[in-house]
Design a protein around this nucleic acid. Structure first.
Lengths: 332, 332
DNA sequence: TTGTACGCGTTATCAA
DNA sequence: TTGATAACGCGTACAA
């Protein structure tokens, strides 16, 4: 694939490879006429420097590794877009790996990325706390930024929204609409620590308002049957908080199949603000995370860490509560 | 990031680097006890070979480059998943780049990928015909597989469905439902040759059935106003063919804002079969492409090309016509 | 301002 | 079965 080297360029231009290298990298002075000769040679041969050789020599690959649960979830796709946008501007390429929501894949993909010599990592891990892998990265001084994960560790950087506050906002909104019985549909902790944070913040807010502790459903385990069972009982929740939009869309479809009307019979709240939640009918009430912006910020912070001109940072971006059509004042 | 080398391993194991390399790559005989010593050293140091050094030496990076219009469109995200699945099995990493539907970005991202020494490419280009870049790749014998693009060139490999037949199927379905006036909403040729193929196949099928040539709308140009204008006239189409699902979802939302009922007033057909088209209400009638499978097949074919044990292949996968809830028999 | 020569980590050839 | 060493393409210290 890569036949030409700077040797070829130097031959055609009639100069040494050192001069060619200097001109390409704009390090050191090169006479105007030799610069021209080199440019012509590069043009003529259609030469592009071999990044592998450069990487071996410099110890930098100008690539970053990304670890996310899945590409298919639009939240992460949007974040990837943000990362790519800024990465491209800075001449970095991105190597994307996914864990498919299986945390035991995290180690392997990170090892693969490190082995490929990435200059840094952007990670969304299942669980930030007591994470052996992150500790290992810390110990080896490998630059990384957490995306969506939050941490209290001052020696780690992360980009996130305030999940706790957003979840409380949702609880308050639903309470204000007159709801008294709640359900939470989320992911287990070994899959997503964000889900746990959202669940607890929501649940605590409900309880602090003197209302009954929400019923909890694990979305990974036979969702349809669980919903069916729940709604066959008389005392079913009138409001459901889903810990992400993908779950919310799925829940709404299941309810529709069960002939339970949203929002007339049940209000549903999501979390993420994926574009398509805006296209469904009724439009989903949700928390709009600035995913693209989050990806951009994650890369910018990572770049600071890589180039050593930045300390660790907790970047918390604003969110927007979108109260749309899947939530409604309760009937009395 | 990568401090340890096989030199360190050889020191700890008390053998030469050549033996370590042989053992790691299972090339050449290594005595059982020295193999054990090497394994222990690798374990103890937590050594992983430096892929950059290996790549420089072997000329193979075990990486492939992917060029798609966008990560945010779930069609491509699903295809990426398929590629990653098989790539991972074969110890290849994937470098993903996007053109953001701007064909002038194609050259730059491909150059970047080649410069990074990828062993091959998977491409979805805006327009396969008269594509200078593809000709250049052909000339330089760079292995690549087209994904979603179709080609008549026997010296190129591609993975696709039969867009023409699928579009005819849609036309026939709508005709059978009694529709007589049609609209097509698509992308211009410089953005997507698939859109053109679908449009023409649909249009020709309509005309061959003695019906009026469909009205055409460019989705990239002020969609809302165009639809508003169209539906203010009396003779508006009762059936709209959108050349992909993303457009269809957008169109449905615009119609909803204009208070035009789908499917009661207008039938809408999409194309792609993204997961979320199944979650909207009404459920979208569309062509289900096996995107994940298509990604898998693209990688498998690329691997054959890379390892030289395969000829070029036209891989056409079956699709499924999903006649769901956005299409309806016309009122008389 | 330019050129020579070394080394980054690895694999592969050759000799032992 | 093992070890010494050249080479991959590049950047850079040093010499000119």
């Amino acid at each position: 694939l890569q036949e030409l080297t700077i040797k070829d360029v130097s031959t055609v231009a009639g100069v040494s490879i050192a001069t060619v290298s200097r001109h390409i990298n704009k390090t050191g002075k090169v006479a105007d006429d030799t610069a021209l000769k080199i440019d012509n040679a590069i043009e003529e041969l259609n030469f592009r420097p071999n990044i592998v050789g450069r990487a071996l020599r410099t110890g930098k690959t100008k690539s970053i590794g990304i670890v996310i649960p899945s590409i298919s979830n639009p939240v992460f796709a949007d974040a990837l877009n943000g990362v790519q946008l800024v990465a491209k501007e800075n001449n970095y390429i991105t190597i994307i790996t996914t864990t498919e929501y299986n945390s035991s894949n995290e180690e392997q993909v990170i090892q693969t990325l490190l082995s490929n010599g990435v200059d840094g990592l952007i990670l969304t891990v299942s669980n930030e706390k007591n994470n052996k892998l992150l500790s290992k990265l810390d110990k080896e001084h490998i630059p990384y930024v957490l995306l969506y994960n939050k941490t209290d560790n001052k020696n780690r950087s992360f980009v996130s929204i305030d999940n706790k506050k957003a979840s409380q906002d949702i609880a308050k909104t639903l309470i204000k609409l007159g709801h008294k019985k709640f359900g939470i549909i989320g992911l287990p902790i070994h899959i997503s620590d964000r889900s746990l944070i959202r669940r607890e913040a929501f649940s605590n807010c409900i309880k602090q308002n003197g209302l009954e502790k929400p019923f909890e459903i694990d979305a990974t385990h036979n969702l349809e049957n669980q919903l069916l069972e729940l709604y066959q009982s008389k005392k079913y929740p009138t409001a459901l908080f889903c810990s992400n939009d993908a779950i919310a869309l799925h829940v709404i479809q299941v309810l529709r199949n069960l002939n339970i009307k949203v929002p007339d019979d049940v209000s549903v709240f999501g979390f993420d603000g994926i574009h398509l939640s805006n296209f469904i009918n009724p439009i989903l009430s949700t928390v709009m995370q600035p995913s693209t912006k989050m990806g951009e910020e994650a890369f910018k912070q990572l770049l600071k860490l890589i180039t050593h001109d930045g300390a660790h940072q907790a970047i918390v971006l604003p969110y927007e509560l979108r109260i749309a059509e899947t939530t409604k004042q309760i009937k009395h």
